[in-house]
Design a protein around this nucleic acid. Structure first.
Length: 280
DNA sequence: TGTAGTTTCTTTGGCAAAGG
DNA sequence: CCTTTGCCAAAGAAACTACA
């Protein structure tokens, strides 16, 4: 998708880009090799420069160049070109306030390998593992997960970051991650009843009683969220490209990876209905 | 070529939504 | 509970057009 992108050039809107596509300018090459361009003087100058730079930066696998020049609404375009270097991630915490609460677990998924990190066990390993990726994807992570990680783990976490909340929102899907999954018929396989609040209670149970099954259930929930992020990203990417002339960019939806973390339904049922003071 | 007038892009501010 | 972001409207800054 990036090779077809022109709207990261100064003074060039997505509408201008649309008209370029309609006039037959499909890729950066078509601009660079063209005798004369159909836009206004300053736009043409900038566009020529942008297309040359873009070819260079894509050749260098430099995601930041595109991230910094594209309008935020168009960040989804980075996905296909940087898919091999993309990490999906999600955190669970003891609450929403990052001054009072801390991270309990993190799950990291790159489409092949699923890794998890646990507070006071191996949480810090996340810091070096995430460095291998050039693009990170989350749901509402720009305002929640990423600032929480920066504060808690003291890392910059400054990779280009696609927040699916806003991508899905622009496609008409709103109401939170679980709601988006339902609208798109994405399965939650035995974890339908777990939510962020229960994640706190599962963690408390693990800490209080050393209940390993509670931790595994929490990690299974955390992992499922992250696995579904990839599916959502691909569906969103396909719907976005369907709005352009470049439908051949469609990505097949992957089959779910095998899960070794097994949620414990007995614990889920037990915790369901407990209020924030731990009473039934 | 210089400048007024118009179009187009960018910045600013207040509001609502989402995460555990 | 708190923070960040996108959205939308309005104002501001650039750049383009027309005309003498």
């Amino acid at each position: 998708m990036l090779k077809h992108t022109f709207c990261h050039s100064p003074r060039l809107s997505v509408t201008d880009e649309q008209s370029l596509w309609e006039e037959g300018y499909s890729t950066w090459k078509d601009i660079v090799w063209s005798e004369k361009l159909p836009l206004k003087y300053k736009q043409n100058q900038a566009l020529l420069d942008t297309c040359r730079k873009s070819a260079f930066h894509l050749g260098n696998s430099d995601a930041s160049f595109f991230y910094n020049t594209l309008p935020t609404k168009e960040h989804w375009r980075l996905f296909k070109d940087f898919r091999e270097k993309t990490a999906f991630f999600d955190i669970e915490t003891t609450g929403l306030d990052r001054n009072k609460n801390h991270i309990t677990t993190i799950v990291l998924y790159d489409g092949l390998k699923l890794r998890h990190y646990v507070y006071k066990e191996n949480l810090e390993d996340f810091c070096k593992d995430i460095e291998d990726y050039k693009l990170i994807v989350s749901y509402n992570g720009k305002s929640f997960d990423a600032p929480f990680i920066r504060e808690n783990l003291k890392i910059p976490l400054n990779q280009p970051h696609i927040d699916l909340r806003y991508v899905l929102n622009s496609l008409g899907y709103r109401g939170g991650l679980k709601s988006c999954e339902r609208q798109l018929n994405i399965n939650r396989r035995g974890l339908e009843e777990v939510d962020g609040f229960m994640a706190i209670l599962l963690w408390e149970r693990y800490i209080k009683y050393g209940d390993e099954k509670a931790l595994e259930t929490l990690l299974a929930y955390n992992a499922l969220d992250v696995i579904n992020l990839e599916v959502l990203m691909i569906i969103a990417f396909n719907q976005k490209t369907a709005e352009t002339p470049f439908k051949h960019l469609r990505i097949p939806v992957p089959t779910a990876p095998k899960m070794t973390l097994i949620p414990d339904n007995e614990i889920i049922q037990k915790i369901k209905g407990i209020d924030s003071y731990g009473r039934l």
